[in-house]
Amino acid sequence: MEKLLSAQERLLKSKRSRLGGEFRGKFFVILCAVIMISAAIAITIFLGTKGLQSFTKNGVSILEFLTSTKWNPTDKANPAYGVLPFIFGSFAVTFLAALIAAPLGIGGAIFMTEIAPSWGRKVLQPIVELLVGIPSVVYGFIGLTVLVPFIRENVGGLGFSLLSGMIVLAIMILPTITTIATDAMSSLPNHLREGSYALGATRWQTIRKVLVPAALPSLLTAIILGMARAFGEALAVQMVIGNVRDLPNSILDASATLTTIITLNMGHTTYGSVENNTLWSMGLILLIMSFAFILLIRYLSSRRKLR
């Protein structure tokens, strides 16, 4: 009537206990992890080899590709494959967008955490979340129908310009920067504030001399993440930037970025042609840049841990 099985039979691991649901479950979740690893590796390998083809197979010079400003792949006699204008365009809109979005985003974060911590967050947080929710094509569409004509009529130029691109991108990355900056500011220990106020500092002095320096690595992370998003954004920029192959002379000139050229030409170039392959090489630059942003963010977070 008591335990019918011996202690060995009850308590030692057996084949049955090893191959039960526990095993199947563990197998399933490990499989999921393997899928994620394979996806990341596959993307790197596929886009890496495909992106190098224009140099290895088609004999395009890497140096020319990266440093020439002449882009004319369809010229049969004398094709030119310089993508510097697009690289420049990508970096230009990214930095310009960050230049607008960073002060606004960090300012918004400070408003939520320091100026009006009780109700400011309740009001601004949902607003920021709603901004995140607006799809990028909608930003592009509004940029195209509102911003471009507005700039054409009030500022000058065609309207399709670096300026339009940077404004659209700035609004798109504003929520990213605001959210992360808010988290950074609100996770600062309260004794920093109390200590500063106790010394008779005003709120602005506290923010400028104590809080912002303390949160600086996280605030930089916020800006870098925003820039990473801006650098990779394709459709919204493509709709407003004008997509010309020349280097812009002013902020009101039309321009192009790596993503906009890919968006525009991938669909109607022949797969495997030199021009098509150079588009894949531009994709590889985007991939490498997104790795670079990851490294930069890791560097910043290691500095944050050191503090």
Partner: peptide
């Protein structure tokens, strides 16, 4: 750590790059 890096890579890829990978594969 490696799996975390992979997740980070996937999440920071521009969607146009994901589209290109999709096109290729």
């Amino acid at each position: 750590d490696f799996i975390r890096t992979c997740i980070e890579v996937l999440s920071s890829l521009p969607s146009i790059v994901i589209g290109m990978f999709g096109l290729l594969v």
